[in-house]
Amino acid sequence: MRRGLWIALVTVLGVVGCEGSPATGTSRNKTSTGPITAVATTGMVADLVKNIGGEHVQVTALMGPGVDPHLYKSSPADISQLNRANVIFYSGLHLEGKLAELLERMSAKKPTIAVAEAISPDKLLTDESGAHDPHVWFDVSLWSEAAGAVRDALAKFDPEHASEYRAACEAYQTRLAELDGAARSELAAVPKDQRVLVTAHDAFRYFGRAYDVEVRGIQGISTDSEAGVRDVTQLVGFLVERKIPAVFVETSVADQNIKSLLEGCAARGHTVKIGGTLFSDAMGEDGTLEGTYEGMVRHNVQTIVEALR
């Protein structure tokens, strides 16, 4: 009797196994018409692909608006999207953590492109142990360089429309260059010693470098990291000394930590206000201005300029 049971079990498992093996993921189909199905991980990457691919590419973002890439949880629908996609774009430099490892392995089956990894390494910031900081989109000129990777990938995958991709990319890069210049000049209007960006976590290093803004974060980049009491009192001292009028909260980080700074400054007779909410790891809702990369950058720059001026 017991053996019967085992045989039944083994048979069931066998059936399951057999059903599993012959099916394979979708492979690219050159004869198919209609738009290329592309999947992007973050909203920023999806926006990039949308702008370059135009009508020939249908792109979906796995991480919807407001979803922090560190805390993204996948679902079965996401996996079937990945399996069905013709091309996959992701940010790279470990921004997506384990998901990026999966995408790297998928490159044997279909093109998967890490857009930020196309930026020349000498322009990237590194951490103490030599790994690159992945938050490249805060520097518009770097993001513009990443656009080139999307263009090349699409042109290679779909040579028929290669010229259109190149044209679209050029146009987009021109717009980004304008945006970059505008951001630079707007920020330059803020006096040099007031040009300080204080946030809860230290994600704005590229922004600081590109637009000559001094950047101070309370805690490190990792969500697990935490500040010391001395770090906070020193930061308060810094704010008071330099008479910085505002600090900023981020969409994806709790704002309790920033409030203690305000109190600390108030106790020393210097009023600091919360200058506004910056988009850091995720963009705004679809359909709003902040739902596009350009809108997001503008929002951040305007918020900072208005608060610090």
């Binding site: 560190h70 805390l71 470990h94 921004l95 953590g97 384990k98 910031l125 590194t126 951490d127 103490e128 142990s129 790994a131 900081d133 992945p134 230290d202 290093r205 805690q219 490190g220 980049i221 990792s222 969500t223 697990d224 990291s225 935490e226 500040a227 010391g228």
Partner: peptide, 15 residues
Amino acid sequence: IQGWVRHADLDVDCV
């Protein structure tokens, strides 16, 4: 983390 790799994106969930 705070002492040595403040700028690394190191958290258990992610890595």
